[in-house]
Design a protein around this nucleic acid. Structure first.
Lengths: 343, 343
DNA sequence: CTGTTAGCGCGTTCAT
DNA sequence: ATGAACGCGCTAACAG
């Protein structure tokens, strides 16, 4: 594999001159530039970015640490991050943590070793230690999707509390009073925030907050399925379910289907995260849609701004709005009341 | 940021000794190791992988170049690749080409500069040049999902021709004779192979191959939607559609829905790629499911074996089987014939 | 078991 | 407009 030295010899110049040509430096005579370019082409020289990174102390690499790229929500975030990174001449390292703190710690360690210029992190838990560590190494972090205690990094996330509040309000307006929420792990801020928003809506109209209506599980299909089975055991039985994310919602719908309960006739379902329109033919789920692509893109741009030194001086918390998309699954309970009995 | 030198000074040893401790070399006295470890912890030393890579000439990085991570099929491949890479201590750079040859070339160039140890490539087109270039730089490539002319790299793909053949056979068995295929770009091998498999099945039972039943487009929802509209203009009108990938299938189903045609009553639909069960509540599409995760994992493992020098001597072409999953959408045309008229 | 020397490929610094 | 010397942080090769 040829190096600057080889190119320099062939072109009859010093290595530094080759370096200058590559980096489009000024003050290179047309003639030498031609000769160097010719030598580069002749040898098939490809500059070594590793050496360059060692020297310049920047790798032009960002890392995206998330829980599972298999979730369309995170996939979309990843796409937003990649587009922004690529546009700025940065590459992206992808890391799946599976919500495991151990895997996350392991990855973060590796990323520090690799001297990535910045990290976009969807934290697997609310533990601040990892971020503190990165911070100490002077590598900027942007936290995506979830909150973290303290304020050691920028955060770009959505208004989970508000979204859950609105979803719950919608159910209430549709006549529901027994509403159960199927949320994620307590250690994850979005799971907590969504329960808070749900409770705020209930309190607002004076409804009692029943513990047996609040379920914490995992952000998975299986957990959604199980939580649904449990939720239906409550007395009184809930007439509506609020799913904490897309997988939980799918799990809930599958469980209800297996129990031969129709949505929304027998029970209403609403959930967080809208699935991309590319993968659903006939969406029925009323959902709180988060601007995932924007979140990824904005997060990456904020990170890049920090690297460029053009970022804001203090840490930002950017909270993106959630859009409620109303479909059949939240159907009104009022429909079930015979017309002649309606108020 | 402390370096080996700093650690060495603090521990009162030579830098190389620190290096040896880090790399778990043998022949280090327990005492020295303790002192070095203490110094490392005290300084918060994190080895610099960039410098290490420059010296050792390996980056422990793989790259995954695919068309769009937003497609669940590729997402699943990516997950398989990442798991295998991570298990072997490698990291993964993610690159979306959007089926653009220019973007692909640009990325490949960057990956060469970065001296990634190996590349997993879902080629945007059948042009061999890029692969030839990588090959010349002595960076091993594993081509995923699609074929490429020549034999300059390992290939891990699925039996597209066979899958399309089976899907078409199924439609034929269900009584269909006017079957249209909505495929991807002609420049992509899977699009071509699927048309071939479809044609083989038709020929086998002596059906005429009608050009107006064969549509080439893009592997996108929009293209699937448009091709469906066109396909329905053919005379005779097709009674069944074979979609070349998941997005095309969704587009077809949406188009049919907008035309108020029921599947499978008015028209049958089958397609390539099954959507992950995590994102579909009630799958109806009869599909040729490709083992995407396995493809990614096997591809990465083959690549890693090459890097370890334990790979096979000649280039492999691993063709994974496709599983036909029969659901409602391929419903039998025979159902439409009144019972008393059946044979 | 530990240290010395040197060099991976490039770009900063200073000189001409 | 071009070049020489040096060092980024680490480790292979060779001593001892």
């Amino acid at each position: 594999m040829p190096t600057v030295k080889d190119v320099a010899e062939l072109a009859g110049v010093a290595p530094i001159t080759v370096s200058r040509v590559i980096n489009n430096a000024e003050y290179i005579s047309h003639d030498t530039r031609q000769r160097v370019m010719a030598a580069i082409n002749q040898l098939g020289y490809v500059p070594n970015k590793v050496a360059r990174s060692l020297r310049s102390k920047q790798t032009s690499m960002l890392a995206l640490v998330l829980t599972d790229i298999t979730n369309p929500f995170f996939t979309t975030i990843a796409r937003g991050v990649e587009d922004a990174a690529n546009a700025a001449g940065f590459n992206l390292i992808l890391c799946n943590t599976d919500e495991s703190e151990a895997k996350q710690d392991n990855y973060l360690r590796i990323l520090l070793e690799r001297r990535v210029d910045g990290i976009l992190l969807v934290p697997a838990c609310s533990n601040l230690e990892p971020v503190r560590l990165i911070h100490k190494m002077d590598i900027p972090v942007v936290v995506l999707d979830r909150q973290l205690p303290g304020r050691l990094a920028d955060v770009v996330r959505c208004d989970s509390e508000g979204g859950a509040y609105q979803l719950t309000r919608l159910l209430i307006q549709n006549g529901h009073r027994q509403i159960a929420i199927l949320s994620g792990p307590l250690s994850v801020s979005t799971a907590e925030d969504r329960v808070k928003g749900y409770q705020r809506a209930l309190k607002e109209i004076g409804l009692e907050l029943l513990d047996e209506f609040v379920h914490y599980g995992e952000f998975t299909l299986e957990s959604g399925y199980q939580m649904t089975q449990q939720a239906l055991n409550a007395i009184p039985r809930p007439t509506a379910l609020l799913a904490g994310n897309n997988f939980i919602a799918i799990g809930a719908l599958k469980a209800l289907k297996d129990l031969h309960l129709s949505v929304p006739e027998d029970i209403a379902v609403v959930g967080f995260d809208d699935l991309p329109s590319t993968i659903v033919v006939d969406p029925i789920l009323t959902a709180a849609a988060q601007p995932a692509y924007e979140m990824g893109r904005l997060g990456a741009e904020l990170l890049l701004a920090r690297l460029a030194g053009t970022g804001p001086s203090d840490f930002q918390e950017i909270i993106l709005p959630i859009e409620i998309i109303v479909r059949q699954s939240s159907g009104s309970i009022l429909n079930k009341i015979p017309i002649n009995q309606r108020g």
